[in-house]
Amino acid sequence: MSRTLRARICLSVLLTLTVVGLGPGAAGAAEPDPSPTRGPGVTASPGQYALDSRLERALGDRGAGSYLDSATGELVVAVTDPAAAAAVRASGARAELVERSTARLEAVMGVLESRAKIPGTSWGIDPAANQVAIEADGSVSARSMARLRSVAASLGDAVRLRRVPGTFTKEVAGGDAVHGGGFRCSAAFNVSRGTDLFFLTAGHCTQSAVSWSASSGGAEIGTREGSSFPTDDYGLVRYTGTPEAPGTVNLHDGGSQDITSAADAIVGQALRKSGSTTGVTSGTVTAVDVTVNYSDGPVYGMVRTTACSAGGDSGGAHFSGPTALGIHSGSSGCTGTNGSAIHQPVREVLGVYGVAVY
């Protein structure tokens, strides 16, 4: 569970299920997040994406995640022993010795999974703090919050816990709207397999309908090819006919961003989200390997960001320049310019369906 199209009609699809929109405001104020990755993100280079992926495989249990230094832009790799640190430095990245490996942090999340699986909570790995960062939204009752605090206290400084406003809900996001089953959604990225064209969107969108159109009650433009939700949150829709489906993301200002590659997001990096409700918003990646406990089931291996989003943004595109990063799943809302947008890593989805961005 670790990180392991635009047809004019549908670029980033935003689903506006009447049953899932943005939840009510939180009961109680949000608490500040002391994470060292909070603040403006930095741009990741193609070389850093490749190096990050290579080192993650090479280090195995000696690794503890990676992040981008907000001041220098360097790739920082957390490790648990001096030999691993030397290997990281030899590769050109900066090493940081820490107490807890990724495997140990995943074990901590296993405890949370078994003892504190409460709707309205999420947790994920913040490698910059070498901790599991837990969030509880406004729907979590005082009794459940006491239980969560008790479990967190038993895990010591391996975790940190904070209250966030809003309610974790599946949303609809993306660029251009598509409709299915009486719902409105968005497509994240156009993808191909040989000469066949598809678009990716959220699994909680594709679970609701087989046939998709560009307008409510309109002609069919695609049919569901695959869907996964909960546990994951992704779906694949095959275009019908001969669609005009360039590999771009709608920027909602008359322009578009060409997408030429895909990568796993790195904590500390800047990214953008394209959604039909909130348009293009910007944020920073704050945690990976995130579990989100939605009211109708959990999703695993997600990425948490500070991008703003709202109901209607589910299924949309998370990207950085020409690099596809993820498919918008949901959030607990947005306060000012600080959001909590969650995305499904797109590289996993490309591998599952054997498709590629273009």
Rank of each mutant, 00 (worst) to 15 (best):
D33P: 04
T291K: 08
L17W: 03
V352K: 10
A90I: 10
R304K: 15
A83L: 10
G268V: 13
D253C: 07
P230F: 03
S66M: 07
N293S: 05
G316D: 07
G279K: 13
P34D: 10
D296H: 06
S320D: 12
L105V: 14
I259P: 00
Y294R: 06
A93W: 01
T121C: 15
S66D: 09
Q131T: 15
R272D: 09
F199T: 13
T281G: 08
Y358S: 13
L161W: 04
V355F: 03
A188M: 10
Q344I: 07
I342G: 04
E348L: 10
A30R: 11
I118P: 02
A136N: 02
M302V: 05
G124P: 02
S276I: 11
A129S: 14
V357P: 00
G321D: 07
G39E: 08
L68T: 14
Y300G: 02
L197T: 13
V140M: 06
A158P: 04
R3N: 11
R160M: 09
P243T: 10
A64V: 11
A29W: 00
Q207S: 14
E171M: 09
V140K: 06
K170N: 10
A324M: 02
T167R: 05
V178Y: 01
G217M: 08
D157N: 14
A341H: 01
T277F: 01
G301F: 04
G226L: 10
D253K: 09
R6Y: 05
S320R: 06
I125C: 07
R272N: 13
S139N: 09
D289F: 02
A245N: 14
T284M: 02
L22C: 00
R8H: 11
A152F: 03
C205Q: 12
V159G: 02
L325I: 05
P34A: 13
D69Y: 07
E106N: 11
Q131E: 13
S45N: 04
S332A: 15
A84N: 05
R62E: 11
S186E: 07
A95N: 09
Q207E: 13
G60K: 12
G175N: 08
L197Q: 15
A173C: 13
A30Q: 13
G247E: 06
D233I: 08
A317S: 15
E31T: 12
T291D: 10
A158K: 12
R115M: 05
T72A: 05
H328W: 08
T286E: 00
C185R: 01
G124A: 08
Y353I: 03
C308N: 03
P32V: 11
G283I: 08
T18W: 05
R8A: 07
T231L: 06
D61T: 14
V288N: 11
T337A: 12
A7P: 07
N130D: 14
P36I: 02
D157F: 01
R115V: 04
S314V: 09
R224F: 00
A64L: 11
A86W: 00
A265I: 04
T306Y: 02
L251T: 13
V76M: 01
Y234M: 04
G60P: 06
A188N: 09
G336T: 10
G166K: 07
Q257E: 14
A78P: 01
E74K: 09
A209R: 03
G316T: 06
F198R: 11
S154I: 03
